[in-house]
């Protein structure tokens, strides 16, 4: 095989997929971004609207806050779970893994519907609380921010736990033994050695969950109330209800810029691309 022919092989293998993704994904997304700047009244009118009108600023703020809260909850719940997953052996490990992977592989709508069954005023959790005599009536757990936060945290938790457990499993146990033999108490060894060494995994997981949460549509739309509109829902609303494409395009561009920036940071500093692949 000649050298020229040899270098043509990878190109020929990649080309069909490249044409598909370039033509039916990258080009349309670029068109969408272009639409957002194409208004006769000025290129930036829609952006000025997003970042000055309180209604839209609130949606942006709420989206950022909810994503940060989800990511924070995932860190708090995910760290002990990843720790235990990494430490447990045999049946214990298998049980934890099944509890993480079955939901992770199950349709989002199934889990969201499951949360409605559990959280609604006539639902399982309110029923149990009433039976125990702890409450009268019902605690509002769904169709509000609480519901969105519960649902999002459960759906995002595997994205935190699996990469974090992988980071923990690569940690050499001898390091902890060394800390102990040098006189550190178990708590000191954990706080001063284990936590700092697993911190990149925590930050990477936080960024991944935060980034994925920003663009979430299905869960907030079903579990949230009419007052909890998020960015993705606002985009959908402007396309399907008010048919305001340029404004929807501007909102999409803001979301896109935020997502790609976060991915770039995450991949550059925490190897986000590799973390994501770990199922």
């Amino acid at each position: 095989m000649s050298a020229r022919l040899r270098s043509a092989v990878p190109a020929a293998l990649i080309l069909p997929g490249f044409l598909l993704v370039a033509g039916l994904f990258v080009w349309p997304v670029a068109q969408l971004v272009a639409t957002s700047f194409g208004d006769r009244a000025g290129a930036l009118v829609h952006y000025v609207k997003i970042f000055t009108e309180p209604t839209y600023l609130r949606v942006v703020g709420r989206t950022l806050l909810l994503s940060a809260q989800t990511a924070m909850l995932c860190v708090l719940l995910g760290y002990p779970l990843a720790y235990q997953l990494n430490r447990a052996g045999g049946i214990g490990k298998a049980v934890i893994l099944v509890c993480i992977l079955i939901p992770f592989w199950t349709n989002l709508l199934v889990r969201t519907y499951g949360w409605i069954i559990l959280l609604n005023p006539q639902g399982v959790i309110n029923g149990v609380l009433r039976q125990l005599g702890l409450i009268e009536g019902a605690v509002p757990l769904v169709y509000n921010t609480t519901g969105v936060l519960i649902g999002m945290t459960q759906i995002m938790l595997p994205y935190m736990v699996l990469p974090l457990a992988a980071v923990m499993s690569r940690l050499d146990p001898a390091v902890m033994r060394a800390a102990r033999s040098l006189g550190a108490s178990p708590a000191q060894a954990f706080l001063k050695v284990y936590v700092p060494l697993t911190l990149p995994g925590v930050l990477g997981g936080f960024l991944l969950v935060f980034m994925l949460s920003l663009g979430f549509f299905v869960v907030p739309a079903i579990l949230g109330g009419p007052r909890d509109l998020l960015l993705a829902q606002l985009i959908e609303f402007n396309i399907n209800q008010t048919l305001n494409w340029p404004f929807a395009a501007a909102l999409s561009t803001v979301l896109l810029a935020a997502t790609v920036t976060l991915y770039w940071i995450g991949d550059r500093f925490f190897g986000l691309g590799r973390l994501w692949g770990a199922r």
């Binding site: 990649i14 993704v21 039916l24 994904f25 993705a232 985009i235 396309i239 896109l256 997502t259």
Partner: peptide
């Protein structure tokens, strides 16, 4: 570089993909 190009559909939020694909 090429890997990043092919990961894009996974990184870009699906709501944007959906909006972008609609008119073509």
């Amino acid at each position: 570089l090429v890997s990043f190009f092919f990961l894009l559909p996974m990184i870009v939020p699906t709501i944007i993909t959906a909006a972008a694909l609609y008119s073509p």
